[in-house]
Write a protein that binds this DNA or RNA. Structure first.
Lengths: 150, 150
DNA sequence: AAGTTGACTTGCAATTTGCAAGTAATATCA
DNA sequence: TGATATTACTTGCAAATTGCAAGTCAACTT
């Protein structure tokens, strides 16, 4: 599997567009799902990511985690009480992708008639994004704090 | 090239997650760049998309436009004054992806030291998203209005 | 000491993508 | 009016990415 950073985007010509830059880092089918698990579901271990409903392959997961780490979006630490386990957590840079995730979630929730998201979610989010962030900041940033104290 | 809808996501197990749903539709290296060109740069023709700095291959572009059309995110109309040309435009559903694009752009602009985005963009956007949307709504929705009147 | 667990890696087949070269239907030019 | 351009694609093939199943290997657990 791809070892060098950027191989994900190696075929695309460079541009100075910030959207293109972002997509080089997370514009693929899996990266944002891993970040969703980290940021919104509080998952921290390899096996937990594998257990998500979408069933990412272990080699792809390893590759995505490696890239995210190389980009400073996640950090990998050994678990103190069990050295086999590695604990993944988002950095501040990674946490700042929360609004991207929520925006994508709100769009999906509004357009997927089969969505599993709570019925009010999208409406509440669109009506007052800042309010929504404020309301959930505690929960979201607590994940980050937990990681800092390791 | 993939002809049937969803082949892009065929390998991923279904889930009821709205993020997963969204990524099935635009979680790849090219789709959001096409939407960027449509929504933020006002491009409307096949050749215009091909001319963007990232140099999408023509078969991939055709495939992405086809999928977006199948999903009701863009519409394709013949140009009245030149039947060779097709005019692509976003629908309301497509236009509602603007906030996703801007959120991704702001993140990229904040983290890419080489970004071509104006220096104040990300700061202004993060300081007051609603204000930013309000300020640019005219420009953005005019693209939509132009399409509606065809 | 033997078995289990967790986090990966490896090999190979199936898919997707990029590249270069078509093709087909207009439109424009001489 | 016939020849040449344009525009929006399609096609064939090579290269890159992904998924799947089966390891590997160090650290627990019993």
């Amino acid at each position: 599997m791809a070892t060098d950073l950027m191989s994900n985007a190696s075929r695309r010509e460079k541009s100075n567009c910030p959207i293109s830059y972002s997509l080089d880092l997370f514009g693929d089918r899996w990266t944002l799902l891993v970040l969703r698990d980290l940021i919104l579901h509080g998952k921290t271990r390899f096996a937990e990511f594998q257990n998500s409903a979408e069933k990412i392959a272990s080699n792809t997961l390893a590759d995505r985690l490696r890239r995210l780490e190389e980009q400073g979006i996640v950090v990998r630490n050994a678990d103190r009480s069990d050295a086999r386990q590695k604990i993944y957590a988002v950095t501040k840079k990674g946490l700042s992708l929360t609004s991207v995730l929520l925006e994508i979630a709100a769009w999906g929730a509004s357009h997927d008639s089969q969505t599993g998201a709570p019925a009010e979610f999208a409406a509440k989010f669109y009506a007052d994004r800042e309010g929504y962030y404020r309301e959930h900041r505690q929960r979201i940033s607590s994940l980050f704090e937990a990681q800092k104290n390791r």
